[in-house]
């Protein structure tokens, strides 16, 4: 009798333990994806974050095996330093405890630490990865930077050569004088 009761007691315990172990394993397997950047650095990234990348979703739709296998998902147009920044941004914004003020402070600091070139590279990477939140944040931030600047600054910022002839430019100056166009 006693033996029987013991075995019936331990039985469910064992299965629970096994379930738990299984759960742990599957969780581990599902929770990370291997991403490889253009400069051949591999990253193990939380699936919850990696699945926010449109490019990763798309890749997994085409080859679903990649989510379980050890093969890295290639990110052709993202270098490791950009991916590090993108992950930093998303980890912060995913963090449950982050309050509105924390995020605002984080965003400001995040932006301050980037020079204009990095900003543009990051925008290209965000566009390639198809990460909406960061993409919107970057486009908006760049708009804020050029908002009240003159034409010359905008050209410099975007690395654009002025291809207007002096005559065209003069005509333009007149036409758009109302908008406060300043030519340097």
């Amino acid at each position: 009798m006693a033996e029987e009761t013991e075995s019936t007691k331990t039985e469910p315990l064992k299965t629970a333990e096994e379930e738990f172990k299984k759960l742990e394993i599957t969780e581990e397997e599902e929770s990370e994806l291997k991403l490889e950047t253009s400069d051949h650095v591999t990253f193990m990234v939380e699936a919850s974050i990696a699945m926010k990348f449109g490019a990763v979703q798309q890749y997994l739709e085409v080859s679903p095996a990649a989510s379980a296998s050890a093969t890295a998902i290639p990110l052709h147009n993202v270098a490791s330093r950009e991916l590090i920044l993108i992950l930093e941004y998303y980890r912060m914004h995913d963090w449950v405890d982050a309050g509105e003020r924390d995020l605002k402070e984080f965003d400001e600091r995040f932006l301050k630490d980037l020079n204009y070139e990095e900003l543009k590279e990051l925008l290209l990477a965000a566009n390639y990865l198809n990460v909406e939140k960061l993409f919107n944040f970057l486009t908006k931030s760049i708009a804020n930077i050029i908002r009240n600047k003159d034409v010359e600054f905008v050209r410099t910022f975007f690395g654009i050569d002025n291809d207007y002839t002096p005559e065209e430019e003069a005509a333009y100056r007149e036409e758009n004088a109302w908008a406060g166009v300043k030519f340097v």
């Binding site: 543009k120 925008l123 290209l124 566009n127 993409f135 486009t139 908006k140 760049i142 708009a143 804020n144 050029i146 908002r147 009240n148 003159d150 034409v151 905008v154 050209r155 975007f158 690395g159 654009i160 050569d161 002025n162 291809d163 207007y164 430019e169 333009y172 100056r173 758009n176 109302w178 908008a179 406060g180 166009v181 030519f183």
Partner: peptide, 26 residues
């Protein structure tokens, strides 16, 4: 050099006068 579509997305955030100023860039 950012492609047109990205420039569009950035310009869309600007007030109208800045958008027209932007047309003088190139």
């Amino acid at each position: 050099i950012l492609p047109n579509e990205l420039v569009e997305r950035i310009l869309a955030y600007l007030p109208i006068a800045s958008i027209f100023r932007a047309s003088c860039v190139c």
